[in-house]
Nucleic acid binder design. Structure first.
Length: 435
RNA sequence: GUGGGUAUAGCGUAGCUGGUUAACGCGUCAGUUUGUGGCACUGAAGACCAUGGGUUCGAAUCCCAUUAUCCACCCCA
């Protein structure tokens, strides 16, 4: 078939047959966040381009080469959000939310856009579940946020992940560290790759992350940030580790993890899965104590994380996690003839008003084909209406799983009778699970 | 942006040492007599074999280009 348009590169359709998977994740994720006291926030899909430049960082890949920037009719340029933190902070400040009781705890489920080359677990339009907490500089906040992330993963049924944590210090210790890095890497200017050379001045920490053989070889013996932390940062990190241990949360200190977004300070962490290919980071986050002030607010410590929903789904599929099953049809009413058709429409309508999932034919099919359809839809009950039923005012309600039929009144008692049948059905399912 | 793999009906595949109407499974639809689904059987619809060039008497099959997609690098969720 020759289509006139195809799905853009790096995007995915969510088809009805997969909706229940997304619903499962969205439900678990938001319920867990609410258990921890986080409330949902929504904000625009696009923002002024400057917001991302200033928060995510001018030198980052995300800003330099991955943003979808569009110009509107005026002179302003807007950018499709590549992540959720910047928009959240902007919205929090613009609505004065930091003037209310602290900590402020928000969560979101959003789509994000980055112009990257697509591969497994990496899309141009992808979805994130993220949380942000404002107002606390305590390690307890870090531990709580990490505990939330872990709790979400466990409730989704994801068990095989590793939690990596690190501290990248505050601006004070970072400056000393970056100086040390420049001195160290300065000895190898003739060997480092081009991108790393350009990183030297602006952000030498990112050289540590370079996967080029030569650079990573040199980076092996580079100074480690943890040796340069100031007393406050060191204490914060030690307290966090202790608190995580007390909570029974296993972690690995990994001095190599350096988040690629400039706003992070002190704690950074990620949960990694090894079952979904190269893009195994399913959750990444950390503290960003300077960002609120940088965007024009009062100095306010803050932190958060984001999870890639597509990556969560990949992991859940890889680990054979269970999804909530979609709701199926409660009752299908098959009609034969014009008179029955009228009655059918009336009954279906009444059932729907009571909240039942009721269906009837819209294809002009014969009885047999209607029954086949009802079966395929997974209808729990069927009811056949013809002249006989209309005359007697009674019909046979068929339980499709068992094949049993019970008589049901088509009069005023219809809804009550059907409710009883549904309750019996539910009760029966429970019995089956017990057995 | 850089590599490598793959492109055949809605989905999954066969056919790929070139040769009549491109096959199979699943799915869809209809039927197997009279008012009842699941099973079985029968039949139907559905593919310009990704696109454009070439080689050849002849190309789904060989060659080149383009595009799409997948995996990996990079980066990140």
């Amino acid at each position: 078939m020759e289509l006139i348009a195809k799905r853009p590169n790096g995007t995915k359709d969510m088809i009805p047959a997969e909706a229940h998977k997304w619903h499962t994740v969205e439900k678990v994720v938001s319920e867990t966040a609410e258990c921890f006291g986080f409330k949902e926030i929504r904000f625009p899909m696009f923002e002024e381009t400057g917001l991302f430049k200033r928060s995510v960082g001018d030198t980052t890949d995300v800003v330099q080469k991955e943003m979808y920037t569009v110009s509107s009719k005026g002179d302003d340029t807007f950018t499709l959000r590549p992540e959720g933190t910047a928009g959240t902070v902007r919205a929090v400040l613009q609505n004065g939310l930091l003037n209310e009781a602290l900590p402020l705890k928000t969560y979101y489920i959003i789509s994000c856009f980055r112009h990257e080359k697509a591969q497994k677990g990496r899309l141009r339009e992808f979805h994130q579940f993220g949380v942000e907490m404002f107002g606390s500089k305590s390690y307890l906040a870090d531990a709580d946020v990490i505990a939330l992330a872990q709790s979400v993963l466990l409730r989704l049924g994801i068990e095989n992940t590793v939690l990596n944590i690190n501290s990248i210090g505050c601006p004070h210790c970072r400056e000393k560290y970056q100086q040390a890095l420049r001195e160290y890497f300065g000895k190898y200017t003739d060997k480092l790759c081009g991108t790393c050379l350009s990183r030297m001045e602006k952000n030498p920490m990112r050289i540590l992350d370079c996967k080029s053989e030569i650079c990573s070889d040199i980076a092996k013996d580079a100074p480690v940030i943890l040796d340069f932390l100031c007393d406050e940062c060191k204490e914060h990190f030690e307290n966090l580790k202790e608190n995580l241990t007390e909570r029974g949360i296993a972690f690995k200190v990994n001095p190599k993890i350096v988040r690629g977004l400039d706003y992070y300070t002190k704690t950074v962490f990620e949960f990694v899965s090894d079952s979904i290919g190269a893009q195994g980071t399913i959750c990444g986050g950390g503290r960003y104590d300077g960002l609120v002030e940088q965007l024009g607010g009062q100095p306010t410590p803050a932190l958060g994380f984001a999870m890639g929903i597509e990556r969560l789904l990949l992991t859940m599929e890889a680990e054979n996690c269970e999804f909530n099953q979609p709701k199926t049809c409660d009752i299908y009413i098959a009609a034969m003839g014009k008179a029955a058709e009228k009655k059918t429409v009336a009954l279906v309508s009444a059932l729907r008003d009571e909240g039942y999932h009721a269906e009837s034919d819209v294809m002009g099919r014969g009885l047999k084909a209607q029954m086949k359809y009802a079966d395929k839809m997974g209808a729990k009950f069927t009811l056949v209406l013809g002249d006989n039923e209309l005359l007697s005012g009674k019909a046979k309600l068929k339980n499709m799983k068992k094949g049993e039929e019970t008589e049901i009144s088509l009069g005023d008692k219809f809804i009550d009778d059907f409710s009883d049948a549904m309750i019996a059905e539910m009760f029966d399912v429970e019995e089956m699970f017990k057995g």
